[in-house]
């Protein structure tokens, strides 16, 4: 798998001081495949994603994107990789100082040197793709609702038509109906682009809808990895407890204060 994988992680370790967050992650994401990494809070989902993006540097292991090693890669290699990726942040991370259309067109203007007029037209088309009208284009991100901000963030992620998409908790902080709208948009955009996707979430409804494959992270390791259709029939007690949301079970969650 790793020879053809768009993203390949091998024995990735990452610690913060004495706290070992990732303890040997192995994971592949194939071309056109959508993988969701699930797990409780503090299990290392975001750290895994940030290691792949180069925002954090692992102490050990290998991370290959399109077959190119990213651990210890030069800035130009990393920028080349990032030019083919799109990322939807948990809080959307829209730039407050720019209007909505400039947020969406940011990668086109600054990353690819596109003329502002042309980039604005593309931004408005991408906003339409995520169900937002042209009247939103000149608004400030701060004046949008949480769901609208997520949609603008999604429009920004797909604006450069990337080969790889990353989604960080795409449905967190919004109501279930808007969450479902976001999930549908993610599936639609990913399929239209033919991109592979890596999503981190603890929302099982989102994982079932977005992903072809699910990997469960626990204590810094992938403890289950399989097709989304096999989640309910898997005999992994950790996965079953997480999916069912039971307090009782083998997962050593931070419930001692309850």
């Amino acid at each position: 798998m790793s020879d053809t994988a768009k993203i390949s992680l091998r024995d990735v370790h990452k610690s913060f001081g004495p706290k070992k967050v990732l303890q040997g992650i192995n994971l592949d994401v194939g071309p056109g495949e959508s993988v969701a990494i699930i797990g409780g809070s503090g299990t290392g989902k975001s750290v895994t994603l940030k290691c792949v993006l180069g925002l954090l540097v692992p102490e050990q292991g290998s991370i290959k994107v399109n077959g190119t090693e990213m651990v210890g890669a030069s800035r130009s290699t990393r920028e080349e990789m990032l030019a083919h990726t799109g990322m939807l942040f948990q809080g959307a991370a829209l730039f407050d100082s720019l209007p909505v259309w400039e947020n969406v067109a940011f990668g086109l203007i600054e990353g690819r040197g596109m003329k502002r007029k042309q980039a604005r037209d593309i931004a408005i088309a991408r906003l339409a793709d995520v169900g937002l009208g042209a009247e939103v284009a000149n608004m400030s991100p701060a004046s949008l609702s949480g769901g609208m901000q997520k949609r603008v963030g999604l429009a920004r992620a797909i604006a450069t038509e990337p080969e790889i998409l990353f989604f960080d908790e795409p449905t967190t902080g919004i109501d279930p109906i808007m969450g479902d709208v976001i999930n549908d948009l993610i599936v639609k955009c990913t399929r239209e682009l033919g991109a592979c996707a890596m999503t981190i979430t603890h929302d099982m409804a989102s994982a079932r809808k977005i992903a072809d494959r699910v990997a469960m992270l626990y204590q810094g390791k992938i403890i289950w990895d399989g097709p989304v259709s096999e989640i309910d029939n898997a005999d992994n007690p950790y996965l079953q407890q997480f999916v069912s949301g039971d307090i009782e079970g083998p997962l050593d969650l931070d419930l001692k204060h309850l």
Partner: peptide, 15 residues
């Protein structure tokens, strides 16, 4: 910008 991940977003947008 740092605590709301906007600086991370800049990096992912090749800036």
């Amino acid at each position: 910008m740092r605590v709301t991940e906007q600086i991370d977003a800049l990096v992912t947008l090749s800036t």
